[in-house]
Write a protein that binds this DNA or RNA. Structure first.
Lengths: 198, 198
DNA sequence: TACAACATGCATACCGGTCGGTATGCTGAT
DNA sequence: ATCAGCATACCGACCGGTATGCATGTTGTA
């Protein structure tokens, strides 16, 4: 068993525990119990619980979003279609149990941003990257005349990300994929309402 | 000092502590220290920490929302104007420090809904009442021909509440009233986009 | 009206359990 | 012989909750 694999096991277990309980309520003991490792292993690879949490943010949450959404959007020729298609995919694929625990990113933002500067910074980097990617997608849409020229792409992108997380939050409370579907459909309508009058 | 006043002091202190730290991280000792009271007082008026939290939800958070928004909307002749005016008021009046801690309702929803059934139920009652009030405002707007007849008022109301909380969440992460202003302005645009073509 | 009996409204002291973190020891590879 | 890679044992701090004590009314009874 290589050291890197041990580190990865701890990271994944921590990500799952944090997703379930939140960061503050996440128990080091639970994380270790689910891996079969002990504190020696954890504190060999991570100096503190906070460092472990930040590693989860950067190496699990951020990486996941980059791969699923941000990179495809950056490389797309028709990013507007890619964005709408991705929203549509999420609507169809995510099931009820996905909303039991909510969006890992949104969860940490709500919990940690006001009480931990480092978390706030790392999380905001993700949200900002997300916003910028959507903003550029809207900009490209403007050059293609698929978005009205008077639209403030930066503000619209900020709203889209915010509302997206808001949809997650509502679906999490209802624990209902149907709620998420309905919400995201309205968000799609908002994006479409940015198009020029037919 | 009447018993009711003691209870109220505990409630307010608990609401503030929960707003700052979240429910799970909220410390009974901190709450009591800020009031000058002791555990005897608290456990005389509330059987448990959970009961105290639920009382905060019902008697502080819910009551506040009812008085500020829900009741005025229910009684309004032009609820659509009342809604837009309220959103505008919030945009202008709330300052940066209001977003340091975020929306008390949204905070608890994100933290407690997945891990405590009682919290989930009580919080969902508030969200549902909020949604219904907005839905009825949109319905009234339809009878007044200020909202298109093809609009799904229930779905639109659900999205408005979700996005509203999403705006809070983003502003909380950025700790910026300007972010909230920009976001809520886009939400206003969404509401206006439900109107018939001019 | 006088006094006992009792309940209300707290304060104080204490409990077991869990937390994150550390100091130390062992083991195998280099 | 050294050091990375872990395991084990232990620590003080804090947690929510409880048991008990003690005033201050409030009520029942003669």
């Amino acid at each position: 068993m290589t050291p890197d694999l041990t580190r990865e096991k701890i990271l994944q277990a921590a990500a799952a525990e944090i997703h379930r309980q939140g960061f503050q309520a996440a128990s080091i003991a639970h994380i270790l119990a689910s891996t079969g490792l002990t504190k020696g292993a954890l504190y060999h690879h991570f100096p503190s619980k906070q460092a472990l949490g930040l590693a989860v943010v950067d190496e699990v949450i951020r990486k996941g979003l980059e791969e699923r959404l941000l990179n495809p959007l950056r490389e797309a020729n028709e990013p507007l279609d890619t964005l709408l298609a991705y929203m549509d995919n999420r609507i169809r694929e995510l099931t009820d149990d996905a909303f039991e625990l909510g969006c890992p990113l949104n969860n940490l933002v709500q919990e940690m941003s006001p009480i931990d500067e480092a978390f706030k910074t790392h999380l905001d980097h993700i949200l900002h990257a997300w916003q910028v990617v959507i903003e550029q997608a809207l900009n490209k849409g403007q050059t293609q005349n698929r978005i009205r020229q008077d639209v403030d792409c930066k503000a619209a992108a900020l709203f889209i990300v915010s509302a997206w997380e808001g949809c997650w939050g509502m679906a999490k409370n209802r624990q209902s994929a149907q709620t998420f579907r309905s919400c995201m459909a309205q968000l799609s309508q908002f994006v479409l309402s940015l198009a020029p009058a037919a």
